[in-house]
């Protein structure tokens, strides 16, 4: 019953390097924006761009290091890469466009 055991065809390394590197990267990408905000070195606009950039990089760390984003079942394409990419596209559209559309009400407190 090979089915009961993980197959040898997908040999797993004995130390979880991928997860450890991912974890370290995620810590670094959290500390950097925290430091940028608390230290007030940058002006607001570059600061916001900087910390959002770190957050976007964090998505990639989680997706590629932890979530096996590009792995499929080996039968046909890994469709989730397409579907989630469309999802991120629409998420950005909905947030960005809502801010744009609703900006007429900025004076409302």
């Amino acid at each position: 019953m090979s089915g009961q055991h993980p197959s040898t065809a997908h040999a797993t390394p004995s130390f979880p390097w991928q997860y450890v590197i991912g974890f370290i990267l995620s810590l670094v990408l959290t500390v950097i924006p925290l430091w940028l905000v608390l230290d007030h070195v940058w002006k607001p606009t570059p600061l916001v761009i900087g910390i959002l950039l770190c957050a976007v990089l964090q998505i990639f760390v989680q997706l590629f290091m932890f979530m096996h984003f590009t792995h499929g079942d080996g039968n046909g394409p890994a469709y989730q890469t397409v579907i989630l990419s469309i999802g991120f596209f629409f998420a950005i559209i909905f947030i960005g466009a809502s801010i744009w559309i609703m900006s007429f009400g900025y004076q409302v407190q």
Binding site: F90, I93, A97, W100, I101, S103, F104
Partner: peptide, 18 residues
């Protein structure tokens, strides 16, 4: 189809660019 929704409330007055 996802990029047209404001046409239901043009009269809200989001501005000419929107």
């Amino acid at each position: 189809g996802f990029l047209t929704w404001v046409h239901h409330f043009f009269t809200m007055g989001s501005g000419a660019d929107v």
